[in-house]
Design a protein around this nucleic acid. Structure first.
Lengths: 155, 155
DNA sequence: TGACATTAGGTGTTATAACACACAGTATTC
DNA sequence: GAATACTGTGTGTTATAACACCTAATGTCA
């Protein structure tokens, strides 16, 4: 029997609805996972969001993305991407240059240093995924993924 | 066929591992849910975290909780509960008073206004849970809850 | 009981997020 | 091609989060 969230948080009454129960479980699980990766990235001087940016930029076909494209691909809403990128540029992880074909746009790409960082992190990130969720078997993971996809249908 | 996260985020390669896939799905789903409730609470002038505090204080048996007890029951890590409570006290949602038996502690409880707010919110919160996750049936919700509990075993 | 550790809470400061607004470049319409 | 709308980006400002440190009250143990 897995310890349920209600007793973990010492809540008196049962949750008001099964939907709420699922919601709270999701929030709680997210928070713990987020904290784990925050600690993981701390020695490298980057945040979860910044790692996300590095990962997206590495995955971009063209080698560069403008600010709004990047924002759309971020997992979380992020209203101030400009200054997030400012900070990453300042420490030399990314570089920006104005696009010649549309001078409104600014293309962002990884620097060598940024590329090396995200490449170097592959191993530790993979290991952390293994540590945090490795005890779930394939069936469970696929089931979880499927249910989370279903959950997003109305979001 | 549910739209999968990879195509949603226009990612080139498949995710490196099933654990990572689950992780990213979880982060994405959390973010969308969080945003939905943020919008819900905005007209009432409170944040998700503040609602969480109200809910916890209402659920507390004794009627009051000291800062650290409250922090432990929060779903997310929150290093600066003091000033979170400062703000809630300022707008009259909570009240604090020093505990006489242990003068280090400060007990926090809902004011009438805070109690009324969280009571009034019950309906809209329930409706929002219904709107966001109501399309999942009981089996799916229970399965999701169970899998998320399992996921937290190593966290 | 006096020295020391521990615990609860708060404060100062810096970093980041959030929101509204402004500006420049581009597209559109007449 | 001039006026207008739209789009992409950046800036100013405020609110919140994060981190390290500080103080007071209590507990512990010689």
């Amino acid at each position: 029997m897995t310890p349920d969230l209600r007793s973990e948080l010492r809540q008196r009454k049962p949750f008001d609805s099964l939907q709420q129960d699922a919601h709270l479980n999701l929030v709680r699980t997210f928070a713990l996972l987020q904290d784990a990766f925050e600690q993981l990235f701390k020695p490298y001087g980057i945040s979860n969001t910044q790692y996300n940016v590095l990962r997206i930029l590495r995955g971009a076909e063209s080698g560069g993305l403008c600010r709004n494209e990047l924002r759309e691909r971020l997992l979380t809403r992020m209203p101030d991407v400009t200054r997030l990128l400012d900070r990453m540029e300042e420490v030399g992880l990314i570089a920006r240059e104005r696009v010649t074909t549309d001078r409104r746009q600014v293309s962002t790409r990884l620097t060598k240093q940024g590329r090396r960082l995200v490449d170097d992190l592959d191993d530790v990130v993979l290991a952390e995924h293994q540590r945090t969720l490795g005890h779930l078997n394939k069936t469970e993971l696929n089931s979880l993924i499927e249910l989370l996809s279903r959950a997003r249908e109305n979001l």
